[in-house]
Write a protein that binds this DNA or RNA. Structure first.
Length: 289
DNA sequence: ACCCAGGGTGACG
DNA sequence: CGTCACCATGGG
């Protein structure tokens, strides 16, 4: 990996195991949009709007200040060696089928509060609609960011969201999740420190997240994996359920304990590998064709 | 009209 | 502990 910063363009070259498009579109993050006219991705991360484009093994980000270089490398999880993870998948009789289509996926290191609210919204919902609700939430009460004549909105602060009314949240499409969003934002605004969950063991951190209304087992695991550094948190949604059934249980439905046992056997990076399985399941439209 | 989507809550056994 | 009706919303 080679890093260069010039004229606010951050160029990261000689990348291995990195596919920007798959990583932005795989449903882990909801604030990246593809700009077909420019063949690039526009995203908002930590109140910074950025244009990202990949050509071969080179990734370019604009704008980027010297002080932001480390933040972007961390966000895209470029400090982690994915070659070993992909080798693990490739060497598995069960999992190797996922690799051809999913190779290059990276698990982004997102903001805990944004991830918490985003995945409360994700419950019993689909990715396109989730993105729309979040985008309208940001426009409603997020800080405006202007870059190159275009307007973006940062993800709102806990205070800004907790100051909203349930009616406002329903108006942007949040539906029955509106009170969950309000109560959760209120708790964080009052000082609940989500970052403390990074240092806890998986089980304790999970129990803590389950105390938030609107957060169940699956959403908790998404928050742990996508924003709290728990690489062994393994979210199970309908897609993963189908994929695991096919890959490990001869297309039959395992008990919860049987599934947990398999996940444990995948190891300390099971969560990251889950992302490859999820991509495979959606790409191959498991159970839908 | 029915089914589905990165499911969770609350009630009831 | 497990099961299950119900929950807003838009697209297929």
């Amino acid at each position: 990996m080679k890093i260069d910063l010039k004229d606010e363009v951050l160029t990261i070259s000689q990348l291995k195991c990195f596919d920007l498009g798959k990583s932005c579109s795989c449903g882990q993050a909801f604030r990246w949009g593809y700009d077909a006219a420019d063949d690039c991705w526009l995203g908002v991360v930590r109140a910074k709007a950025v244009r990202a484009a990949q050509h071969g093994d080179t990734l370019r980000l604009f704008p980027c200040n010297a002080g932001d270089v480390d933040m972007w490398l961390d966000y895209f999880d470029l400090y982690r060696d994915y070659s070993g993870i992909e080798a693990l998948i490739s060497g598995s009789e069960r999992l190797s089928v996922c690799l051809p289509c999913a190779s290059g996926i990276r698990v982004f290191r997102q903001e805990p509060f944004e991830t918490l609210i985003s995945f409360i919204i994700s419950a019993n919902n689909n990715i396109k609609r989730i993105s729309g609700i979040i985008e309208r939430l940001c426009a409603l009460c997020g800080e405006r960011i202007s870059v190159g004549g275009r307007n973006f909105f940062a993800f709102p602060s806990p205070e800004a969201i907790s100051a909203l009314s349930a009616e406002q949240l329903i108006k942007i499409g949040a539906g029955y999740r509106a009170p969950y969003i309000l109560e959760t934002a209120g708790r964080v605004a009052k000082g609940y420190c989500l970052s403390d969950l990074k240092g806890m063991n998986l089980s304790d951190a999970r129990s803590e997240l389950l105390r938030f209304k609107g957060v169940g087992p699956k959403v908790a695991d998404c928050i742990l994996l996508f924003s709290l550094g728990h690489t062994d948190a393994f979210p199970v949604d309908v897609w993963i359920g189908r994929a695991m059934s096919e890959l490990y249980f001869n297309s039959e439905t395992p008990t919860k304990h049987e599934l947990e046992s398999v996940v444990k056997s995948i190891g300390e990076y099971s969560g990251i590998i889950q992302q490859y399985i999820f991509y495979y399941a959606r790409e191959s439209r498991l159970g839908k064709a």
